[in-house]
Amino acid sequence: MSNFDPNAILRGAQLTLVGVNRALQNPELFTSTHYRQAAISVAAGIAIRLIVAVPIIGVRALLWFLSLFINMDHAQWDNDVTNGLHFLEHSVLQVPFFLMTLMRYLTPTLDQMFMDSLRWVDQTYVQKHKSEDPHNLRALYYPNLQLYSTHAAPGEKKKTSLKEALVIFFLRYGRKTAISLTVLALSYVPYVGRFVLPAASFYTFSSAVGPQPALVIFSSSILLPRRYIVTFLQSYFSSRTLMRELLEPYFSRVRYTKEQKKQWFQDRAGVLFGFGLGFFVFVKIPLVGVLIYGLAEASTAYLITKVTDPPPPPSEAEEFKKDSIRWKNKHDFLSLPWEMLDAHNIEMHQPKRQSDVRQTPRKTFS
């Protein structure tokens, strides 16, 4: 459980809170551009709620029409149908979440929000440590990262077009939907069905947390109702999907290979899950969820400064990608006192000053 232990997940949740706090302090977050995007987000939130509600409203209208000819005063199946449809949309298919993540491909504002927030995180860090020797502080993230192009460089594979990106997005969502519906359908098979969802839980978590914790999850899930297991599994998968979408502005610039990117995520799995799960809970709030999604993007800039090194100039990118796959200072970060979150930056780049950091702790949680 070295990559997915409870402490790592809690640290990710802490980064959620601190990241939001930092993002909301950024005056550039409240510019006219972002206000306009906020208004669009609210409108999109309303549209998403209406789109999701259409099937349920349609079913209710059909049931009302049938009630003109059939006595349903003592029937319960009509409520079961509407409740089941609601559960299918929100917990199995995650339709609102799907429509929300789709917005990234339709507006470039989220990418700019990430970069503006990253610049603010650097400025805040310098301001917090302005009384110290600048040579003892960490390198900044924004100056070099903004030099990285989001377009393919000569000799690189051509950047995916919007149409291709949307096709990949829909195919990925369609594959996940097919798997979810298949597993759910198999859970209704007599006798063996009750073991399908627990087995899916074990398979999902055995590679992430190890076979023994996964076996505990398997044993516990046998005793739980189907609805709770489905919600648990989908929350896990959706929080991972959310995290990958939030990190897209970073990976669109520092372009790792597929295998490098997999290792990058795996080495930071616990912290990323805690961070993504915290926002996933709030993103599901009706109407304002899209606004929370934008705030999560801004907060991801703070996360980046904790889980990877500052990028070098683009000319040194290849060596940096090989070196940054592993989170070298993971143990130092996870063992920090809760109120010394920013001390990680000094220990990370100035190991000779670790004793100084411990002797003169900085309360930089806020």
Rank of each mutant, 00 (worst) to 15 (best):
K321S: 07
R119E: 14
L145M: 14
E245Y: 06
T177Y: 06
Q354L: 10
V52L: 06
F265A: 02
S315A: 15
Y105R: 04
L295Q: 03
R226D: 05
S201H: 01
H34K: 15
H151C: 02
W327T: 06
G294L: 12
Y141S: 05
S32C: 01
P143Q: 11
G19M: 14
K306A: 11
L336Y: 02
L295N: 01
L10D: 08
V357G: 06
I57P: 06
A13E: 01
Y250R: 12
V81N: 07
T109Y: 03
A200Y: 15
K159C: 07
R244F: 09
P27G: 08
L287I: 15
S131K: 14
P225V: 09
R49K: 14
L233M: 15
A269K: 03
S32D: 07
T308V: 10
Y125L: 08
M103H: 02
V167T: 11
P311D: 01
Y236H: 08
E339Q: 13
R194Y: 05
H349G: 11
P337Y: 04
T107Q: 04
S206Q: 10
S91Q: 10
P249Q: 12
H90V: 00
S324P: 05
F265C: 00
I346W: 05
Y256M: 12
E259Y: 00
A47D: 08
W264E: 02
P134C: 07
Y250L: 15
Q234K: 05
Q350S: 01
Q212F: 14
Q112P: 01
L68Y: 06
H86F: 11
L110R: 05
N136K: 12
R353N: 15
A199D: 03
E259R: 13
Q123A: 11
V18Q: 09
T204K: 02
L303Q: 05
V126L: 14
V95E: 11
R22W: 08
R268W: 04
F98C: 07
G45L: 04
G19V: 15
S207D: 11
S67W: 05
L247E: 13
I56M: 04
S355I: 12
Y173E: 15
L166Y: 04
P337K: 06
V20M: 10
L223Q: 11
K306G: 06
H344V: 04
R104G: 08
R138W: 00
V271C: 09
S235K: 06
E319Q: 13
A298F: 07
P314T: 08
I285Y: 09
R362L: 06
D267H: 11
L181T: 07
I46Q: 03
H349V: 08
V357H: 03
G45E: 08
D309G: 00
A47M: 13
V288S: 00
I46C: 08
P108Y: 06
A208C: 03
S335R: 02
V230H: 00
F69L: 13
A343Q: 10
K262D: 14
R253C: 15
M100V: 10
F218H: 04
I179Q: 00
F195A: 12
Y236M: 02
N71R: 10
S67G: 10
L295G: 07
L181C: 10
L140V: 03
D332L: 01
F69G: 09
R22M: 09
Y148I: 10
T82S: 15
P96V: 07
T101A: 03
Q260H: 09
V18K: 11
R326T: 06
E245L: 02
A298K: 03
S219P: 01
Y125A: 09
P134S: 01
V20S: 10
V283L: 15
G84N: 13
N136V: 12
F87K: 09
L184I: 10
V126Q: 14
G210I: 12
